[in-house]
Design a protein around this nucleic acid. Structure first.
Length: 452
DNA sequence: CTAGGGTTAG
């Protein structure tokens, strides 16, 4: 009894150290506890695993799971849910699936949380059909869906472009005994904005107010992004100052919303003004904020400032990511320095980020633009995974280089494999090929004429 | 231990 109580107290202390990111202290406390005879329990380990997931990633967290098993404590459904959620957050799809299977093999019965995470995982991976299958499985196993389940599905449907189904499910929530909450409204508003239905989003916003919900900072930034996307920059700016005026916490999220919106419009001055505000307000600057600032510098052609930020990131002990380097590579290509872009891509590879399809797409585009056709084709043929951006860039590039025969063959391969290619690329290839054929025909006619 | 806002390419 006393031992149980003490372990519980120990767990509370460990939890607060974990929240403060002080994992060394947390582990030292576990060791102290063991010395005093208070053995860590499942809660201790789950707390530690959650902290490892948050700060060090799923691999590090998994090593705690091994230690836990060595100590004779069996992982439970919460242990696996924690790991699964972490893997999904990091977009490690196959890792998520492996963990789910491992959980089943360990005879741990998945609960609603597990299923919610799996649904989220499949939607995030763009695998809607697999998500539906998991939902089916959840129902057939009589696991009651929660509001989080419906929120996850509505979000997934929105992201998959299925706004109609998302709205239908949303309207059914009361009947399903899961009345929507603010988070549900935020999901729906974002989904509506992202598919261009800003007026509907504003209707939902109004409905939210009528029902007595108060929009939070997330609601605001979501609507602001929607305004900019629909060409209503003024309204976006207005809402931002309203947000400030009403005392909402203006954090890096809010500032980055404005910075990236103005960057997209090519309005450098405004983007820089919000950057100054962000840096001046003392909010912590995370990697996404750095990437946002770098992007605005790159869009303005100021690569010197962008690289200065890269040094700042690395000196400050933060880790640059795929976005960071892709932004730089694209920036270098846009100012015409493809050699530097290639060098930076090699640097990116040394950082273990070389598999980035977006970075490769940018580089291919830049190489074609700079007339380095053979290098572009080499990079293209080396790519293991290609997408519709890859093919569109390559088709445009081949047309620019007047290699219409290759382009036609590639285009027909795309059509056969169901790869979506921008209409502009399809038209360029066909127009070029027709023109080329006409030229060829007239040359043949001319040659025939000369010989007869 | 899940679900929502800000970062990249045609």
């Amino acid at each position: 009894m006393i031992s149980g109580l003490s372990t519980r107290l120990l767990n509370i202390c460990i939890s607060s150290f974990c929240k403060a990111r002080n994992l060394e202290k947390a582990e030292a406390l576990i060791m102290d506890g063991i010395r005093l005879g208070y053995l860590p329990d499942i809660v201790t380990y789950n707390t530690l695993i959650a902290a490892y997931c948050r700060f060090l990633g799923v691999d590090a967290a998994y090593s705690v799971l091994d230690k836990m098993k060595e100590a004779g404590i069996h992982p439970d459904v919460i242990t696996y849910n924690t790991l699964i959620t972490c893997a999904t957050k990091k977009k490690l799809i196959s890792r998520t699936l492996d963990l789910f299977h491992e959980m089943l093999e360990s005879e741990i019965v998945p609960d609603a949380w597990s299923y919610n995470s799996m649904i989220h995982c499949y939607f995030k991976a763009g695998r809607s059909d697999d998500a539906y299958q998991i939902i089916q499985e959840m129902f057939s196993r009589n696991i009651a869906p929660t509001l989080a389940t419906y929120n996850t599905i509505i979000n997934g449907l929105c992201k998959a472009g299925d706004i109609g189904d998302a709205l239908r499910l949303f309207r059914k929530l009361d009947v399903l005994c899961c009345p929507p909450e603010l988070i549900t409204y935020n999901i729906l508003i974002d989904g509506l904005c992202k598919c261009g239905k800003v007026p509907e989003a504003r209707r939902v916003l109004k409905e939210l107010g009528i029902l007595g919900y108060t929009p939070n900072a997330i609601t605001y930034t979501t609507v602001i992004t929607g305004c900019f996307r629909s060409g209503q920059a003024n309204l976006g700016v207005e809402l931002f100052s309203e947000m400030k005026h009403k005392g909402y916490n203006i954090d890096a999220f809010a500032y980055c919303t404005m910075i990236s919106a103005f960057s997209k419009l090519g309005m450098t001055e405004e983007a820089y003004a919000y950057t100054d505000q962000m840096l001046g307000c003392g909010a912590p600057i995370d990697i996404v904020s750095y990437n946002t600032m770098m992007n605005s510098y790159c869009k303005a052609g100021d690569l010197v400032s962008a690289f200065r930020l890269l040094n700042e990131i690395e000196d400050g002990g933060q880790k640059s990511d795929e976005y960071t380097h892709t932004i730089l590579i694209d920036g270098l290509c846009k100012i015409g320095d493809v050699d530097a872009a290639r060098r930076h891509f090699r640097y990116m590879e040394t950082r273990g980020l070389g598999s980035s399809i977006v970075a490769r797409n940018c580089l291919i585009h830049g190489l074609f633009k700079a007339g380095q056709v053979d290098l572009a084709i080499k990079l293209f043929s080396e790519m293991k995974v290609k997408d519709s951006y890859t093919y569109t860039s390559v088709l445009h590039g081949l047309c620019k280089a007047k290699r219409f025969n290759v382009a036609v063959r590639l285009l027909s391969a795309c059509l056969k494999d169901g790869v979506k290619v921008l209409r502009s690329a399809r038209r360029a290839v066909l127009a070029g090929f027709r023109k080329e054929s006409r030229k060829l025909k007239s040359t043949i006619c001319l040659a025939k004429g000369l010989h007869t």
